[in-house]
Design a binder for these strands. Structure first.
Lengths: 149, 149
DNA sequence: AAGTGGGGTTCCCTTACGGAACCCGGGGGT
DNA sequence: ACCCCCGGGTTCCGTAAGGGAACCCCACTT
């Protein structure tokens, strides 16, 4: 949606926004992740306009985040996450965690996450890939990397 | 920006998008996190229109993600992350990680993250808060929570 | 032959973005 | 005292994007 294209910036956050930063895109990914995979189901679930849903789905398919798969001999298809798209789900889980903490209020979280490995309800916890200790805002320094030109 | 307000939905992802989902907002938070805290500096760094920057900053302050702090006797101020805002930085780090993996290409990541605890270059790795094992798209089941009404 | 359901297009209206110009208050220089 | 600058916005206008509803095409089903 944005007039300014973020993809040109030397910033991985900006580039990521170019793929999934348009309005509705994260919610579409959430739906597909949660098993709502068909055009009309997504449209009904989100209340998004059909026009915009078409645009978003096409963009996400072009970007390799979703793929369109037939589920019938007729021209019927479903949207599925690719590996690239499945990798975005951690971003969704982090967003959900933040909303649970800061916005859910009295009622508590709308959705719980049960982790297969331990069978318990948990949430996502960002840790350093190197040492495994927590990795939050104040735990890192930013340095220019090879692609910083 | 979105016409439809996401805040009403029983979904923490949608509610989070209501706070930081408008175009430019994540990049503004990135700038403030990285130490670019003043109106004109952010404006120049992003190339965003002054009008939209004003709107975004006001919204982020209203939502308690940023605070406006004076840095001079004159009416001069800087924007800083609140605790609520600092907690969003993990989302930025996850987005950056995804962009680094899938979009950076030959040149490599534009920014490196050095973790204070271990002093090494690393990236954020989402793990289960309960057992500490990795938590990715296929590692969880979604269950209705207390706030699911 | 008429109906239905998935999956989109098309049209029109309104809202929000982008850009540039303008404004305002407090110093500082001369 | 006068003028200019600088941070931090506000105003105005043209254009592009979102929302909604109607329409369309195709492959069955009855």
């Amino acid at each position: 949606m944005q007039r300014t294209r973020f993809g040109e910036m030397a910033c991985s956050i900006a580039r990521t926004l170019d793929v999934i930063g348009e309005p509705w895109s994260p919610l579409i990914l959430r739906d597909v992740w949660a098993g709502v995979r068909r055009f009309d189901h997504i449209q009904a679930d989100l209340g998004i306009s059909r026009k915009v849903l078409t645009e978003r789905l096409n963009h996400l398919v072009e970007q390799g985040v979703l793929e369109r798969l037939p589920y019938d001999a007729r021209p019927r298809h479903e949207y599925h996450l690719t590996a690239k798209g499945a990798d975005l789900v951690e971003m969704l889980m982090v967003m959900a965690r933040w909303g649970d903490r800061w916005l859910a209020g009295e009622a508590g979280p709308p959705v719980l996450y049960r982790h297969h490995a331990c069978g318990q309800i948990g949430h996502v916890d960002p840790r350093c890939s190197h040492c495994g200790e927590p990795m939050h805002a104040d735990d890192v320094d930013l340095l220019p990397g090879p692609g910083s030109a």
